[in-house]
């Protein structure tokens, strides 16, 4: 692996991210809308005796959503790079495809972790009392989940050459992943077929570990329902899998 190349690929994304302030604002606005408008609305339908207030219940889901959107958006910038030709500059360089994938995945990881942490900072507003350890645990989850979803985004990006595909990715990948992740409602209440689909979604596991950290003893349906060990294993395994697949797909030549 060429560390210089990995470094410069990350540095480029970071620089462009800093330069485009509007991108950061809209990235932060989306979770806030869900948290304070959709969340506030739906919370009126949810009985109070469930143990966890609804706005608290969706908090890990909204952090997960922030990661989902920003990681995939970051990774599919590859499609833009292809469209505008810059990808060729990277592909003809003496750099292994693996380094390119790692560089892009780390870019997504860093950018979405930053955004997730901005949302995480709202925890006092929502009535959470978190210790340092819990915060560190959530940061760790954010980093690994971001890496996993970014790597998944790269796999997606290898299939498309133009940004016309953006709405397809939005409607058929990002939104279903969000709705089938236990972010807005517990996975265990879903019909069988949807529950199976949710279990195939790595985001489900990331959000579930955060539930373990934020409200481990929630009674009834609101609490976590996958063991922490299982979730960690799934995230690590799928991360490796996506990186390997992405590397192979990048290797393809006409």
């Amino acid at each position: 692996m060429e560390l210089n190349a990995v470094y410069v690929i990350v540095a480029r994304e970071f620089k462009k991210f800093i330069r485009e302030k509007s991108r950061l604002f809209s990235a932060i606005a989306r979770p806030l809308l869900w948290l304070f408008i959709v969340g506030a609305g739906i919370s009126r339908l949810v009985p109070h005796e469930t143990g966890v207030p609804y706005t608290q219940f969706i908090f890990p889901g909204i952090i997960g959503m922030t990661i989902l959107f920003s990681s995939i958006f970051s990774s599919i910038s590859i499609i833009w790079d292809k469209e505008f030709g810059f990808m060729k500059e990277i592909l003809v360089a003496p750099v292994s495809r693996f380094s390119i994938v790692i560089g892009k995945a780390l870019s997504g990881t860093i950018l979405s972790t930053i955004q997730a942490l901005i949302i995480l900072a709202l925890f006092p507003v929502l009535g959470f009392k978190l210790g340092l350890l819990q915060i560190l645990e959530i940061i760790l989850i954010c980093v690994s989940l971001s890496f996993c979803i970014s790597a998944f985004g790269i796999v997606i990006a290898t299939f498309y050459d133009s940004y016309e595909s953006f709405s397809v990715i939005m409607n058929f990948i990002i939104m279903p992943m969000f709705f089938l992740s236990g972010a807005m409602y517990p996975v265990k209440l879903l019909p069988d077929i949807l529950r199976i689909l949710a279990k195939l979604n790595p985001l489900t596991y990331g959000i579930d570990i955060m539930k373990h950290v934020l409200f481990p003893d929630a009674p009834g349906n609101m609490g976590p329902d996958i063991s922490v060990m299982t979730s960690i294993a799934v995230i690590i395994f799928t991360s490796i899998l996506f990186v390997v697949i992405a590397g192979k797909l990048f290797e393809r030549k006409g």
Binding site: N4, Y7, E89
Partner: peptide, 25 residues
């Protein structure tokens, strides 16, 4: 130098060249 430009238009001239220098070690 490809037929269609392969520069990153959102980076400066200097940044484009530095990117290249890192990429080629």
């Amino acid at each position: 130098v490809f037929q269609d430009t392969t520069l990153d238009k959102d980076l400066t001239a200097y940044e484009n060249l530095i990117f290249h220098a890192y990429l080629y070690n």
